[in-house]
């Protein structure tokens, strides 16, 4: 089974992060949320592998649970 990559995998991570944030410049909160949804769907389709997607969803919700316990 393919494992979800959680080690650094994006070259120039700072540049990527800045680009991601800049994408939202000038959008309202609702527009930003919609943009994020579109982005997630595009990326999920690119990944394709349901097992990997399931792992990503599990990790994302786990970080939320951790946070509540802080």
């Amino acid at each position: 089974m393919t494992q979800l990559i959680t080690t650094p995998n994006i070259p120039d991570a700072d540049g990527f992060y800045a680009e991601l944030i800049a994408l939202h410049d000038g959008l309202t909160d609702d527009e930003s949320a919609a943009l994020n949804a579109r982005l997630i769907l595009l990326l999920c389709n690119h990944i394709g592998d349901r097992a990997v997607l399931a792992q990503a969803m599990a990790q994302a919700i786990a970080a939320h649970t951790n946070r509540d316990q802080k």
Partner: peptide, 26 residues
Amino acid sequence: SKLSHLFRNAVLDLAANHSFARQMVN
């Protein structure tokens, strides 16, 4: 912005367990 704050905290939340997010903590 609120969005930028949201992503920042998402990075911090994931960074505790995932090294990919740690490199984004700035």
